[in-house]
Simulated scan of single mutants.
Amino acid sequence: MSDLLFSVDNGIARITLNRPDRLNAFSTEMIDLWIDALETVRDSEDIRVVVLMANGRAFCAGGDVKVMTQGEGMLYNNTGAGDQVSTGLARKNTLWKRVQRVPLLLQEIDKPVIAVMHGLAVGAGFDMTLACDIRIAAQSATFSESYVKAGIVPGDGGAFFLPRIVGVDKALELLWTGDSFTAEEAKQLGLVTHVVPDEQLNEFADAYVKRLASGPQEVLRFTKRAVYQGLHTDLRTSLDMISSAMAVVTELEDYKEGVKAILEKRTPNFK
Protein backbone atom coordinates (compact mmCIF):
# COMPACT_ATOMS: atom_id res chain seq x y z
CA MET A 1 0.00 0.00 0.00
CA SER A 2 1.10 3.56 -0.67
CA ASP A 3 2.22 5.75 2.22
CA LEU A 4 -0.52 8.20 1.24
CA LEU A 5 -3.94 7.54 -0.31
CA PHE A 6 -5.81 10.02 -2.51
CA SER A 7 -9.37 9.74 -3.75
CA VAL A 8 -12.11 11.98 -5.10
CA ASP A 9 -15.80 11.18 -4.76
CA ASN A 10 -18.71 13.53 -5.52
CA GLY A 11 -16.45 16.57 -5.42
CA ILE A 12 -14.85 15.63 -2.09
CA ALA A 13 -11.12 14.89 -2.15
CA ARG A 14 -9.67 12.77 0.64
CA ILE A 15 -5.96 12.75 1.44
CA THR A 16 -5.20 9.93 3.87
CA LEU A 17 -1.84 9.48 5.60
CA ASN A 18 -1.14 5.75 5.46
CA ARG A 19 1.87 4.66 7.51
CA PRO A 20 -0.02 3.35 10.55
CA ASP A 21 2.87 1.18 11.69
CA ARG A 22 5.00 4.36 12.05
CA LEU A 23 2.18 6.54 13.45
CA ASN A 24 2.01 8.14 9.99
CA ALA A 25 5.40 9.77 10.40
CA PHE A 26 6.60 11.37 7.18
CA SER A 27 8.40 9.36 4.52
CA THR A 28 9.73 10.62 1.21
CA GLU A 29 7.02 8.69 -0.61
CA MET A 30 4.32 10.21 1.59
CA ILE A 31 5.53 13.76 1.02
CA ASP A 32 5.90 13.32 -2.74
CA LEU A 33 2.41 11.83 -3.04
CA TRP A 34 1.05 14.57 -0.78
CA ILE A 35 2.49 17.25 -3.06
CA ASP A 36 1.02 15.56 -6.15
CA ALA A 37 -2.40 15.28 -4.48
CA LEU A 38 -2.44 18.93 -3.42
CA GLU A 39 -1.48 20.10 -6.90
CA THR A 40 -4.36 18.07 -8.30
CA VAL A 41 -6.75 19.59 -5.76
CA ARG A 42 -5.54 23.10 -6.48
CA ASP A 43 -5.94 22.77 -10.24
CA SER A 44 -9.16 20.74 -10.48
CA GLU A 45 -12.48 22.52 -10.88
CA ASP A 46 -14.34 19.31 -10.05
CA ILE A 47 -13.04 19.20 -6.46
CA ARG A 48 -15.13 21.21 -4.01
CA VAL A 49 -13.74 20.32 -0.57
CA VAL A 50 -10.55 18.65 0.68
CA VAL A 51 -10.29 16.39 3.74
CA LEU A 52 -6.95 15.56 5.37
CA MET A 53 -7.12 12.44 7.56
CA ALA A 54 -5.08 9.42 8.61
CA ASN A 55 -5.28 5.66 9.05
CA GLY A 56 -4.33 3.78 12.20
CA ARG A 57 -4.25 4.87 15.82
CA ALA A 58 -2.59 8.27 15.30
CA PHE A 59 -2.97 11.23 12.98
CA CYS A 60 0.72 11.99 12.43
CA ALA A 61 3.92 11.80 14.43
CA GLY A 62 5.64 14.34 12.18
CA GLY A 63 9.17 13.56 11.05
CA ASP A 64 10.28 9.96 11.33
CA VAL A 65 13.01 10.15 13.99
CA LYS A 66 14.26 6.67 13.17
CA VAL A 67 14.81 7.71 9.56
CA MET A 68 16.36 11.03 10.57
CA THR A 69 19.10 9.18 12.47
CA GLN A 70 19.91 6.60 9.80
CA GLY A 71 22.53 8.86 8.26
CA GLU A 72 24.32 12.00 9.32
CA GLY A 73 22.00 14.94 8.82
CA MET A 74 19.25 12.90 7.19
CA LEU A 75 15.99 14.80 7.50
CA TYR A 76 12.58 13.55 6.32
CA ASN A 77 14.19 11.27 3.79
CA ASN A 78 14.16 7.48 3.84
CA THR A 79 15.00 6.46 0.29
CA GLY A 80 18.36 4.92 1.14
CA ALA A 81 22.00 5.78 1.72
CA GLY A 82 22.35 7.33 -1.72
CA ASP A 83 19.83 10.02 -0.79
CA GLN A 84 21.26 10.93 2.58
CA VAL A 85 21.54 14.63 3.28
CA SER A 86 25.00 15.45 4.61
CA THR A 87 25.33 19.24 4.52
CA GLY A 88 23.36 22.16 5.92
CA LEU A 89 22.52 23.47 2.47
CA ALA A 90 21.35 20.07 1.31
CA ARG A 91 19.16 19.75 4.41
CA LYS A 92 17.66 23.16 3.71
CA ASN A 93 16.96 22.21 0.10
CA THR A 94 15.39 18.91 1.16
CA LEU A 95 12.97 20.77 3.41
CA TRP A 96 12.23 23.40 0.78
CA LYS A 97 11.72 20.98 -2.09
CA ARG A 98 9.66 18.46 -0.16
CA VAL A 99 8.12 19.02 3.28
CA GLN A 100 7.70 22.78 3.04
CA ARG A 101 5.84 22.43 -0.26
CA VAL A 102 2.91 20.98 1.66
CA PRO A 103 1.96 24.09 3.71
CA LEU A 104 2.68 26.30 0.72
CA LEU A 105 0.31 24.29 -1.49
CA LEU A 106 -2.32 24.17 1.24
CA GLN A 107 -2.28 27.96 1.28
CA GLU A 108 -2.66 28.11 -2.51
CA ILE A 109 -5.88 26.07 -2.49
CA ASP A 110 -8.94 28.32 -2.44
CA LYS A 111 -11.36 25.50 -1.63
CA PRO A 112 -12.24 24.53 1.95
CA VAL A 113 -9.56 22.29 3.48
CA ILE A 114 -10.64 20.30 6.54
CA ALA A 115 -8.28 18.39 8.85
CA VAL A 116 -9.78 15.47 10.77
CA MET A 117 -7.51 14.39 13.62
CA HIS A 118 -7.43 11.50 16.06
CA GLY A 119 -4.83 10.05 18.39
CA LEU A 120 -1.47 11.75 18.33
CA ALA A 121 -0.63 14.84 16.22
CA VAL A 122 2.81 16.24 17.01
CA GLY A 123 5.46 18.49 15.48
CA ALA A 124 5.12 18.83 11.74
CA GLY A 125 2.19 16.41 11.86
CA PHE A 126 0.26 19.00 13.84
CA ASP A 127 1.64 22.04 12.03
CA MET A 128 0.36 20.78 8.68
CA THR A 129 -3.17 21.01 10.07
CA LEU A 130 -2.60 24.66 11.02
CA ALA A 131 -2.34 25.38 7.30
CA CYS A 132 -5.84 23.94 6.86
CA ASP A 133 -8.99 26.05 7.23
CA ILE A 134 -10.96 23.95 9.74
CA ARG A 135 -9.65 21.41 12.24
CA ILE A 136 -11.92 18.72 13.70
CA ALA A 137 -10.47 16.62 16.51
CA ALA A 138 -11.52 13.52 18.39
CA GLN A 139 -11.96 14.14 22.09
CA SER A 140 -9.06 11.85 23.01
CA ALA A 141 -6.62 13.44 20.54
CA THR A 142 -3.40 14.93 21.93
CA PHE A 143 -1.06 17.48 20.41
CA SER A 144 2.46 18.76 20.88
CA GLU A 145 4.93 21.12 19.22
CA SER A 146 7.64 18.58 19.94
CA TYR A 147 10.54 19.92 17.87
CA VAL A 148 12.52 21.14 20.86
CA LYS A 149 12.63 17.61 22.30
CA ALA A 150 14.47 16.44 19.18
CA GLY A 151 16.79 19.43 19.23
CA ILE A 152 15.39 20.95 16.02
CA VAL A 153 13.47 24.08 15.06
CA PRO A 154 9.86 24.16 13.76
CA GLY A 155 10.67 23.78 10.07
CA ASP A 156 7.20 23.12 8.69
CA GLY A 157 5.16 26.24 9.34
CA GLY A 158 4.66 26.24 13.10
CA ALA A 159 6.65 29.43 13.66
CA PHE A 160 4.41 31.13 11.07
CA PHE A 161 0.95 29.78 11.88
CA LEU A 162 1.06 29.45 15.68
CA PRO A 163 1.55 33.13 16.64
CA ARG A 164 -1.17 34.14 14.19
CA ILE A 165 -3.61 31.84 15.97
CA VAL A 166 -2.63 31.90 19.65
CA GLY A 167 -0.41 35.00 19.93
CA VAL A 168 3.35 35.33 20.23
CA ASP A 169 3.76 34.47 23.91
CA LYS A 170 1.67 31.30 23.82
CA ALA A 171 3.26 30.22 20.54
CA LEU A 172 6.72 30.55 22.05
CA GLU A 173 5.66 28.65 25.16
CA LEU A 174 4.30 25.75 23.11
CA LEU A 175 7.42 25.66 20.92
CA TRP A 176 9.93 26.15 23.73
CA THR A 177 8.47 23.49 26.05
CA GLY A 178 7.12 20.91 23.60
CA ASP A 179 4.45 20.13 26.22
CA SER A 180 1.47 17.99 25.19
CA PHE A 181 -2.06 19.36 25.34
CA THR A 182 -5.52 17.87 24.92
CA ALA A 183 -8.12 18.46 22.22
CA GLU A 184 -10.19 20.58 24.61
CA GLU A 185 -7.15 22.69 25.47
CA ALA A 186 -6.41 23.05 21.76
CA LYS A 187 -9.97 24.25 21.18
CA GLN A 188 -9.68 26.82 23.95
CA LEU A 189 -6.53 28.13 22.29
CA GLY A 190 -8.24 28.34 18.91
CA LEU A 191 -6.06 25.59 17.42
CA VAL A 192 -9.01 23.24 16.91
CA THR A 193 -12.42 24.27 15.55
CA HIS A 194 -14.51 21.34 16.78
CA VAL A 195 -13.96 18.59 19.36
CA VAL A 196 -16.29 15.60 19.08
CA PRO A 197 -16.55 12.21 20.83
CA ASP A 198 -14.20 9.68 19.29
CA GLU A 199 -16.97 7.41 18.06
CA GLN A 200 -18.68 10.34 16.30
CA LEU A 201 -15.59 11.79 14.59
CA ASN A 202 -16.10 10.33 11.12
CA GLU A 203 -19.86 10.90 11.10
CA PHE A 204 -19.48 14.52 12.21
CA ALA A 205 -16.69 15.21 9.73
CA ASP A 206 -18.59 13.62 6.81
CA ALA A 207 -21.69 15.73 7.51
CA TYR A 208 -19.58 18.87 7.85
CA VAL A 209 -17.73 18.26 4.60
CA LYS A 210 -20.86 17.38 2.65
CA ARG A 211 -22.50 20.60 3.82
CA LEU A 212 -19.61 22.65 2.45
CA ALA A 213 -19.56 20.62 -0.78
CA SER A 214 -23.22 21.45 -1.37
CA GLY A 215 -22.67 25.20 -0.95
CA PRO A 216 -22.14 27.86 -3.64
CA GLN A 217 -18.59 27.06 -4.65
CA GLU A 218 -17.43 30.36 -6.09
CA VAL A 219 -18.81 32.18 -3.06
CA LEU A 220 -16.87 29.88 -0.73
CA ARG A 221 -13.67 30.34 -2.73
CA PHE A 222 -13.94 34.14 -3.02
CA THR A 223 -14.71 34.33 0.69
CA LYS A 224 -11.65 32.25 1.58
CA ARG A 225 -9.43 34.46 -0.55
CA ALA A 226 -10.88 37.59 1.02
CA VAL A 227 -10.33 36.34 4.58
CA TYR A 228 -6.73 35.24 4.07
CA GLN A 229 -5.69 38.20 1.95
CA GLY A 230 -7.41 40.51 4.41
CA LEU A 231 -4.89 39.41 7.04
CA HIS A 232 -2.12 41.04 5.01
CA THR A 233 -3.81 44.08 3.46
CA ASP A 234 -5.37 47.36 4.59
CA LEU A 235 -9.13 47.93 4.80
CA ARG A 236 -9.40 49.82 1.51
CA THR A 237 -7.64 47.03 -0.40
CA SER A 238 -9.81 44.39 1.24
CA LEU A 239 -13.02 46.23 0.45
CA ASP A 240 -11.91 46.77 -3.14
CA MET A 241 -11.25 43.05 -3.54
CA ILE A 242 -14.55 41.98 -2.03
CA SER A 243 -16.51 44.43 -4.17
CA SER A 244 -14.94 42.85 -7.24
CA ALA A 245 -15.93 39.42 -5.94
CA MET A 246 -19.48 40.64 -5.35
CA ALA A 247 -19.67 41.88 -8.93
CA VAL A 248 -18.73 38.41 -10.17
CA VAL A 249 -20.85 36.18 -7.90
CA THR A 250 -24.06 38.17 -8.49
CA GLU A 251 -23.86 37.19 -12.16
CA LEU A 252 -23.77 33.47 -11.37
CA GLU A 253 -26.63 30.97 -11.24
CA ASP A 254 -25.98 30.26 -7.57
CA TYR A 255 -26.90 33.87 -6.73
CA LYS A 256 -30.18 33.60 -8.60
CA GLU A 257 -30.94 30.29 -6.91
CA GLY A 258 -30.07 31.68 -3.47
CA VAL A 259 -32.34 34.71 -3.83
CA LYS A 260 -35.15 32.57 -5.23
CA ALA A 261 -34.85 30.08 -2.37
CA ILE A 262 -35.03 32.89 0.21
CA LEU A 263 -38.18 34.29 -1.40
CA GLU A 264 -39.74 30.82 -1.62
CA LYS A 265 -38.66 29.98 1.95
CA ARG A 266 -36.84 26.78 1.02
CA THR A 267 -33.35 25.35 1.07
CA PRO A 268 -31.30 26.46 -1.94
CA ASN A 269 -30.08 23.89 -4.43
CA PHE A 270 -26.70 25.20 -5.51
CA LYS A 271 -24.85 23.71 -8.46
Results as ranks from 00 to 15, higher is better:
residue 164 R to L: 13
residue 112 P to C: 13
residue 219 V to T: 10
residue 185 E to N: 03
residue 142 T to N: 01
residue 58 A to W: 01
residue 139 Q to D: 00
residue 138 A to W: 05
residue 191 L to M: 10
residue 108 E to T: 09
residue 228 Y to Q: 11
residue 174 L to E: 00
residue 133 D to R: 05
residue 79 T to A: 15
residue 254 D to E: 15
residue 221 R to P: 11
residue 134 I to N: 00
residue 197 P to T: 00
residue 143 F to M: 06
residue 213 A to G: 04
residue 240 D to M: 00
residue 159 A to H: 12
residue 111 K to S: 06
residue 36 D to E: 08
residue 261 A to P: 13
residue 253 E to S: 03
residue 192 V to D: 01
residue 71 G to H: 14
residue 245 A to V: 13
residue 170 K to D: 03
residue 142 T to I: 04
residue 39 E to V: 00
residue 191 L to K: 00
residue 231 L to G: 14
residue 73 G to N: 01
residue 98 R to M: 12
residue 138 A to D: 06
residue 80 G to C: 10
residue 164 R to Y: 11
residue 245 A to F: 14
residue 210 K to N: 03
residue 253 E to G: 07
residue 269 N to A: 10
residue 236 R to G: 01
residue 195 V to K: 05
residue 212 L to Q: 05
residue 225 R to L: 11
residue 145 E to P: 00
residue 259 V to T: 13
residue 64 D to S: 07
residue 172 L to P: 01
residue 32 D to N: 10
residue 194 H to P: 06
residue 192 V to F: 08
residue 185 E to G: 02
residue 159 A to C: 14
residue 178 G to I: 08
residue 105 L to G: 04
residue 16 T to A: 11
residue 268 P to M: 07
residue 192 V to H: 10
residue 6 F to P: 11
residue 13 A to I: 15
residue 105 L to F: 08
residue 263 L to H: 11
residue 135 R to W: 03
residue 109 I to L: 10
residue 22 R to H: 09
residue 1 M to I: 08
residue 121 A to N: 03
residue 237 T to I: 07
residue 2 S to D: 13
residue 200 Q to H: 04
residue 75 L to K: 02
residue 94 T to R: 05
residue 42 R to C: 07
residue 29 E to M: 12
residue 230 G to Y: 12
residue 258 G to W: 09
residue 220 L to I: 05
residue 235 L to M: 10
residue 175 L to E: 10
residue 209 V to A: 14
